[in-house]
Structure formats: structure tokens, C-alpha cells
Design a binder for these strands. Structure first.
Length: 925
DNA sequence: AATCTTTTCCC
DNA sequence: CGGGAAAAGAT
């Protein structure tokens, strides 16, 4: 069916010989025209509605068009011709995601539908806005809610309400436009009411009826709907309710004018906004990866990764891996592997990584992962992910477990088991070795088996031993069962389980110990054998060395690994000496990785053995090899508090990668900051480490981390001697100051003071929207002028450092810049000079505060500034007024003269008078 | 009966 | 307000 505006256009073109085409700048021309002739243009609609031959089905047909040809027409034609046909454009689109609320939720006020921030003009009201173009008289713009489906735009079952004077008005909404408002309609305060599924049909029927009736009335004012129409509408509604998408709506805008019978007549085609999706629904809600447990995988894929996500539905979610080339073109993609069962309660997922496109990479490859929702192909923000080269080269076949003899192992198990089961571990008379073992076991139990060595062991334990172990365990379990008799009570069975678990654990531990015993002798054995062999065949000495030091234990350890692991310094020395005879051939031996990916250098670094590190490096050890946790020797070395040697030796090595992240996403600097190793931090920074690098899991800089650990010396060093960004936000939007305020500890206050001293901005807000204070009262949003231009609008409602400090009066004073004790005098003076221009100096402030303390006027003042929730804090301090004044000075833009007025208004005459004095003094200077 | 979705409720 | 979660309803 032809639209009215099309017909208008056709009529125009038939009249005119030349077609001026679309206007490049209709706005400009429009202004031109209005200024010269808007008053002389007559309304062309004076006689519409009296037409007898209107189409019954289309209100928009040619004949019902308001632009029919009359004598007035020529006048308008000229204008319209120059302008083009009237149309509506969407100046500000509605936001893409919005929470639809049920009727039952519409008590009180909730947020209204805002516009999307559109880059150019920063509207004061950022709300959906449309503009009517090419029309000179006043007109009406109607806004209704329709379906998103472009092929089927029907009225939507949901309601579009608009709050006008505390009453919600349903759609349609009419807004008058004219030259007065630049033909622009802003739809302020709209909300979307989610029609309950069971009412969808009724609602659609209602809206279709309304629409049909309006259409009828355009041709006949007294028209009503007959039964047949009604039946049709009901049938249609029935159909629509099945397919309608309740989580997505569009706004429909159309221009109208009202004729003398109050009938709306369209003057433009309808225009549809972008879709608005229900924020609450898992079908259309936001997709986000909130947290990931690791961001690396072997290029072979198949590694398990845990992620926490915002609400997803398990049937409608994928995890996409993709790689971009330098031009940001996607060059590879695949999906993470998981089943529906791996999606935990819509908020967490466990998946396996797909293999990288090339399984033979030799350097790490950066790719991205993101969530993808197949139903609307919406994607989350991508996060970085790294594929690492495989370590297939590590041989595990050569296990050198001497007691593969069952009897021997069982005996060993029994032996160790006895030790463990004995209640008093230490009191049992034991040989030296046994004492050591029991200590080990005790330690292991204390660590709850968290040691990576133990995990490696369990993982790589050879099959024979495993079988044997299980067998033993089964037998053991059976015996336990037999000894347990009587009716099973819950308690008893729990006890049994615990007992059983303990047994299992101890078995594994015993086995671990046995292997360790064996491994302890490994280095020595090999050295002895090697030397023996060398004596026998002195000519083949080099080959003998090469071969024998490639031998491996269960863990893939070479003799050198073993000697290092067990602290056998002499063995280490012997091996290194033997290796050094090989010259460059030693490089291969010295870089062998064991089954957890560690080289001898890892162990030397972990144990802080500078001489050995030096020796290994001289033999060609590569300091950049990472173990299976992505750790380089450097990552381990930075943890030592006092030792300077190891780090400096490692850092002196050229090509050492000082920014490398572990699999948990930590750089050496961040680890050093966490460990509290001042020296390591110092050395790394001296070696050029980037202080503003952030860790991958929380987005923290070394500063955040040092603050968290309460390492004041490091914090101070970072602030004083580096260009660290004191106000950098981590993933949750917290700055180091936020962290400092919430971190307990004796040095917390001093650290806060340091941060403030070096420019930490307490106004910065994090992304946490919980605005409840300690008393559970709602904190009103403090009206803080955000100065930074690049901040998003949403970021305004997180917590500032003030909010976090609101129940810690001393820290609050500190961040408010009030405490003189802790802040260095020079800095303080600078601050004062800065604020002095707009604020009073400290003495004047104190004077004013004493006046307000006297009269208790500060309470009124606090009330005026809506600081009710801070009352308790103000009360606790020696001068409530002074703190309040500081608060006002820092958090608001109140000028001195404004303050004077405020004081006047709340009846604080004395204070106001004093203020006037200050003001006049300021004017003089 | 268990689990997911929709609706209501509450802080 | 905006966010979260319980209750009710569906599958």
C-alpha cells in the first residue's frame, strides 16, 4: 500500500519540471524558509475529513492524504517542494538494554528509558528524541510500542508508560512539535511495563482494536467496529501471542496533525527506533565474562577453564575463540567445548578449550574469547586468551621407579602407613629418615595436599603403582567396612567416610614418600655410575655425561633436578662441573623440563641460590622457559624478601622477559609486590619493568597489590620513584585508595595518607553500586561534579573513597585532606594554595567551624547538603563543623559566596556575617 | 520430582 | 532507584 508521503512526493514531481532531489541540509533550508515565510503558509488541511471517497482500509491512501490539491496547495507546494516531504528522524535512540518491569513492580519510581549517549552533542536530557523535518506548522508526534520484527510491526503487548506528575500514562503518547521546540520531541520519563504472559492476548486485542477504530474514524467520525472486525482482531491476536518476543520492543514514531474533529491524520511515515531489549531476561540480557580462572591453554586445546558469567541460558550460549590479524580481521575461530551440564545455574560455565589452528606453534599466540548468544548473535566484550606451544617433548615414559616390585611397594606402604596411623607422630621412636618422612607427611597434610609437587606426583604416578595403590586401598576399605558394624547411623557413616578419606590420602602420601626416597638417591646414583663409566671409557666421557644426565625419574626429573629439589648441594656442584666439560652441549641438558615443566633453573630460583643460578646461566640455561603454570624462574625468585642475589643475576641476563605473565596473569613485578619484597620491586623497576602493567585476573597494578598486602615501603617506593598511575582502576573500578581504605591492618592509615599525598583522588567511583552505608540507610547520591570528560555516565554511581571510608572517621578525615599530622607539610601547602582561590584558608575555616560548632548550625548545614547519612561521623569528630566544611569544599562546587547565602538562608547569621568578612578580604587581595 | 522461567517482592 | 532473590508457575 502506498504511503501518503510517497503520494505527496509523486504529486510534487508531476507538477514540477525539475526535481531538486533530497536536501543535503534540510535544517538550514528550513530555517531559511521559516524566517521569510512561515506565517504566510496556510494550513493545507482545512477541508480534510469531508472527503467522501476515502478508502476504508487505508487511512494513508492518496485521497485521505492531507496534502490533496486545493487552491492553497500551490503555496505549500513551493515550500514542500523545496523542503521535500515531511519525515521524522530519530535524533537520540533509546538505550539498547532496559529493564522491563511488571505491573506489580511499578510502585514507586524506577529508572526511565534513557537515550544512548550519542557522541556529538551532550544533551542535558539524554532521552529518546525525534525530530520532524520539512514541516512548517505545528504537528503532533505519536510514540507507541511495537514489535521489533521488521516484517511484522504490530502493536506490542507491553505498555509504554510515561510518568507525568506522579501518574503513569499508557501509550500512545503525543507530543506537540513546532518551530518553538525546533520540531523536536523528547520523550522523557518513559518506562516499559512487561505484560504478564497470560495477559498478552488481551493486551494485543485491546491495542489492535484501538488502532482499527482510529483508522475507521478517519473516514467516518461515528465509525465503530463490527463483530466481524472483532473476530478478525481476536484471531490475529491469537496468532501474534504465540510468536511475539516479550523481551524486545521498538518505539514507533509518526507525525500527525489534528483536524477540526480531533481526528489524527498522519503526515509522515512511521519511523522505528532501534530495539530495546529486556535487561532482566537471559534471552536478551547483557553477556559478560566476569571472571576466568586462567587465560592460557596449550595449543592442543582440551584444557578445562572455569568462567563466571552474567546470566546466560544453557541452551543458548556459546564460547567463541577467535584470532585477529593486524588489521583486526578475524583469521581463525572455534568454540569452547561444553555440555548443558557444564553451565552452572546460569552464572558459571566450565568448558574445554578448542585446539588452536596450528598445533606446532613455538611462541604464544594471543587470541580472544567471548560469549556468543546464537538466538540474537549478540556477543560479550572479548577478553584476551593465550595459546601456548605444547610441551609434548617432555618424555614421561622413562620412569625410573626401582620398586616396581609389588612386594616392595606394599611393604613400603605398610611401613609408612604405620607411621601415619600412629597417633603421636613425633613420640614414636623412628630412624632419621622416618622422622623426616613423617614430618613431610605432616606438612603435606597441613598443606591439604596443595603442593604442586604432590599433585604432579598423583597425576603422573605410573600405572603399575596406581593399580597397586588402588588395590591396597580397596582392601583397606573393605577391612574398614568389616570393622564397622551395627545399624548405620548418619554420624557413623560420615565418620567412616572421613576415616576412609584420610586413609586414601595417607596411602597416596606414603607412595609419594617412597618415590621421594628413591628420587633422593637418584642424583647420587647417576653421578656414581657416570664417573664409573667415564673411568672405564675415558674417551667417551662427553657422551657418557650427555646420556646419563638425560635420565629421568617419575617426575621427569633429571639428576640435576633431583639434586636441586632435595638440596643436595654437593651433588649439584658435581653435576654442574661434569656438565661444564661439555661446553655448549651443556645447554641442552641444563634446559630439560620435568613433568611440571620446570627446568633446574626454576628450582635454583625457587630456593634462592644465586651461585647455582649463575652457574646454570653460564652453562646456557634459558631464563625465559615457563613451567606448566606459566612461571619463569624470575616469577619464583621475586618472592624472597631479603635475597638480592638471585634476582639481580636473573635480571642481568640479557633477553630475560621481565613482563611475562604467569598463567594466572601476574608479572614478576606484581608477584614481587604481593610478596612484599622491596628489593625485588626495586630491582625489577630498575631493570625497566612497566609499573602500570596490570594483572590479568583483577586488573590491578603493583600499587593495588602492594596496598592490599599492606607493604608500605613498596607503596612509598612506587609513588615516590616511579610514574605509576596512582588513580588507575582495577576491573572493579577500584583505585589503590579504595583498596587501602578497605584493607585492614595497622599500616592502612599511613598507606592512605601516602596515596593521598601523591595525588590519589578520593572522588573516583568504582563500579560497585551498593550504596548502603553501615546503618543500612540509603545513601543519597552525592552530587559530585565529575570533572573527567571521558567517564561514562553510568560510572557516576559507584562508590567513591569517601563512601568506603564513611564508617572510619580517621581515614575519612585523611582523605578529606584534614589531618595535618600525617600529611607532609610541603604537600599540604600546595594543596591549600590550590584551593585557596575558591575556598577559605585553614584558619578562616577553623574560625567559621567554631562559630558553627557553637550554634550547632552545622547540623542545618549538613541537612542542607543532604549529608544526613554522615551525621554520625560528623558527631564523632572533635569539630563536626570543620569536617563538614571540608566535605563541602571537596565534594561540592559550592563557592564562598554561595556558602554565605546558604548560611544566611538557614538562619546562621553569625556565620554568614563572618563569611562576608572573608569575602570582602578576598576581594581586596 | 527436578529444574527452568516468569512474576512478585523486597531492600 | 537498581539490584537481587524468593515464590509461583511451567515443563
Amino acid at each position: 500500500m502506498p504511503d501518503a508521503y510517497e503520494n505527496i512526493n509523486m504529486a510534487m514531481r508531476s507538477i514540477l519540471t525539475t526535481d531538486i532531489g533530497d536536501n543535503e541540509d534540510p535544517y538550514f533550508q528550513f530555517n531559511d524558509l521559516t524566517s521569510m515565510s512561515s506565517t504566510s503558509v496556510l494550513s493545507p488541511f482545512s477541508s480534510s475529513g469531508s472527503q467522501g471517497n476515502m478508502s476504508m482500509t487505508s487511512p494513508m491512501s492518496t485521497s485521505s492524504s492531507p496534502m490533496h490539491i486545493t487552491d492553497d496547495y500551490i503555496n505549500l507546494t513551493n515550500a514542500v517542494t523545496i523542503l521535500g516531504e515531511p519525515y521524522i528522524s530519530v535524533l537520540v535512540q533509546p538505550m539498547e538494554k532496559f529493564r522491563f518491569r511488571y505491573k506489580s513492580e511499578m510502585v514507586g519510581t524506577h529508572g526511565s528509558l534513557l537515550g544512548v549517549y550519542n557522541g556529538r552533542k551532550r544533551n542535558k536530557n539524554n532521552v529518546p528524541t525525534v525530530k520532524l523535518h520539512n514541516y512548517l506548522d505545528k504537528a503532533i508526534i505519536r510514540c507507541t510500542l511495537v514489535t521489533t520484527d521488521e516484517d511484522l510491526r504490530i502493536p506490542h503487548a507491553h505498555r509504554l508508560v510515561r510518568r507525568v506528575d506522579s501518574a503513569d500514562i499508557g501509550d500512545p503518547h503525543y507530543m506537540e512539535v513546532s518551530s518553538q521546540n525546533d520540531f523536536t520531541a523528547e520523550f522523557v520519563g518513559m518506562g516499559i511495563i512487561h505484560t504478564a504472559r497470560r495477559h498478552v492476548k488481551d493486551e494485543i486485542v485491546r491495542k489492535l482494536r484501538e488502532e482499527a477504530l482510529e483508522e475507521r474514524k478517519r473516514s467516518n467520525i461515528d465509525a465503530t467496529l463490527n463483530l466481524r472486525d472483532d473476530a478478525q482482531i481476536k484471531a490475529d491476536a491469537e496468532q501474534y501471542q504465540k510468536t511475539i518476543n516479550l523481551n524486545s520492543v521498538s518505539l514507533c514514531f509518526q507525525g500527525f496533525i489534528k483536524d477540526e474533529h480531533n481526528i489524527m491524520r498522519p503526515i509522515t511515515a512511521p519511523v522505528y527506533s532501534n530495539s530495546v531489549n529486556n535487561l532482566k531476561s537471559a534471552l536478551t540480557g547483557e553477556l559478560k565474562i566476569c571472571r576466568i580462572d586462567k587465560y592460557t591453554s596449550s595449543c592442543e586445546g582440551g584444557e578445562e577453564v572455569f568462567i563466571l558469567v552474567e546470566k546466560v541460558s544453557k541452551k543458548n550460549i556459546k564460547i567463541k575463540f577467535f584470532e585477529l590479524d593486524d588489521d583486526d580481521t578475524e583469521i581463525w575461530m572455534d568454540y569452547g567445548r561444553f555440555s548443558e551440564l557444564d553451565v552452572h545455574h546460569q552464572y558459571a560455565m566450565v568448558f574445554r578449550t578448542p585446539a588452536y589452528r596450528d598445533r606446532n606453534i613455538t611462541s604464544p599466540k594471543e587470541v580472544f574469547i567471548q560469549l556468543e548468544r546464537p538466538s540474537d548473535s549478540y556477543c560479550s566484550e572479548p577478553i584476551k586468551f593465550t595459546y601456548k606451544p605444547t610441551d609434548r617433548m617432555i618424555g614421561r615414559k622413562r620412569t625410573r621407579i626401582s620398586h616396581s616390585n609389588s612386594a616392595e611397594l606394599v611393604q613400603a606402604l605398610a611401613f609408612n602407613n604405620d607411621i601415619l596411623m600412629n597417633t603421636s607422630l613425633t613420640s614414636t621412636p623412628l630412624s632419621n629418615d622416618s622422622t623426616e618422612i613423617s614430618k613431610e607427611i605432616k606438612k603435606m597434610l597441613d598443606d591439604r595436599c596443595s603442593s604442586s609437587e604432590f599433585r604432579d606426583f598423583v597425576e603422573h604416578i605410573n600405572l603399575d603403582s596406581k593399580f597397586l595403590l588402588y588395590e591396597t586401598l580397596l582392601n583397606q576399605g573393605g577391612e574398614d567396612k568389616l570393622t564397622y558394624d551395627g545399624a548405620p547411623s548418619k554420624k557413623a557413616s560420615i565418620n567412616f567416610n572421613i576415616c576412609y578419606l584420610q586413609n586414601t590420602l595417607s596411602k597416596f602420601l606414603s607412595l609419594y614418600q617412597c618415590c621421594m626416597l628413591d628420587d633422593k638417591l637418584f642424583a647420587k646414583d647417576v653421578i656414581i655410575d657416570t664417573i664409573k663409566d667415564m673411568k672405564m671409557k675415558p674417551r667417551e666421557a662427553k657422551d657418557i655425561i650427555k646420556i646419563s644426565f638425560k635420565d629421568r625419574t617419575t617426575y621427569g626429573d633429571t639428576p640435576l633436578h633431583c639434586a636441586l629439589r632435595y638440596g643436595q648441594k654437593n651433588n649439584v656442584k658435581r653435576i654442574l662441573m661434569l656438565m661444564s666439560t661439555l661446553n655448549t652441549d651443556a645447554e641442552e641438558l641444563v634446559n630439560i623440563r620435568n613433568s611440571s615443566g620446570k627446568t633446574p633453573l626454576h628450582y635454583a630460583a625457587s630456593q634462592d641460590q644465586p651461585e647455582i643460578i649463575q652457574a646454570l646461566l653460564m652453562l646456557g640455561a634459558d631464563p625465559n622457559i615457563t613451567d606448566h603454570y606459566g612461571q619463569m624462574p624470575l616469577h619464583r625468585a621475586v618472592k624472597f624478601l631479603e635475597a638480592e642475589g638471585s634476582i639481580n643475576i636473573l635480571l642481568a641476563e640479557k633477553d630475560v622477559n621481565i613482563e611475562a605473565n604467569t598463567d594466572y596473569g601476574w608479572s614478576p613485578l606484581q608477584l614481587a609486590a604481593q610478596a612484599g619484597s622491596y628489593h625485588a620491586v626495586y630491582s625489577l623497576i630498575k631493570a625497566g619493568a612497566d609499573v602500570n602493567n596490570t594483572d590479568m585476573t583483577y586488573g590491578r597494578t603493583a600499587l593495588h597489590i602492594a596496598v592490599e598486602g599492606g607493604h608500605k615501603d613498596i607503596v612509598e617506593f612506587l609513588l615516590k620513584n616511579t610514574k605509576i598511575d596512582v588513580n588507575k582502576k582495577n576491573f572493579s573500578g577500584n583505585t589503590a585508595l579504595h583498596t587501602a581504605i578497605v584493607t585492614p591492618g595497622t599500616k592502612a592509615k599511613e598507606i592512605c595518607a601516602l596515596l593521598v599525598k601523591y595525588g590519589a583522588d578520593p572522588h573516583i567511583r568504582n563500579y560497585n553500586r551498593e550504596l548502603n552505608n553501615v546503618d543500612g540507610e540509603q545513601i543519597q547520591d552525592i552530587k559530585v561534579e565529575v570533572h573527567s570528560e571521558d567517564e561514562n555516565m553510568e560510572e557516576c554511581n559507584g562508590q567513591s573513597s569517601f563512601d568506603l571510608a564513611s564508617n572510619k572517621p580517621d581515614i575519612l578525615q585523611l582523605v578529606s585532606g584534614q589531618n595535618d599530622m600525617l600529611i607532609n607539610n610541603t604537600i599540604k601547602e600546595e594543596n591549600i594554595n590550590d584551593t585557596q582561590k575558591v575556598w577559605m584558608d585553614i584558619d578562616q575555616e577553623k574560625q567559621l567551624a567554631s562559630i558553627l560548632d557553637e550554634t550547632k548550625g552545622w547540623k542545618k548545614l549538613a541537612h542542607y547538603f543532604d549529608y544526613k547519612y554522615l551525621m554520625n561521623i560528623f558527631k564523632q569528630t572533635s569539630s563536626s563543623s570543620l569536617l563538614l566544611l571540608n566535605y563541602i569544599a571537596i565534594q561540592t562546587n559550592t563557592s564562598l559566596s554561595e556558602l554565605t547565602n546558604i548560611l544566611q538562608n538557614i538562619g546562621e547569621e553569625d556565620a554568614a556575617t563572618y563569611m562576608s568578612q572573608i569575602l570582602s578580604m578576598k576581594h581586596e587581595t
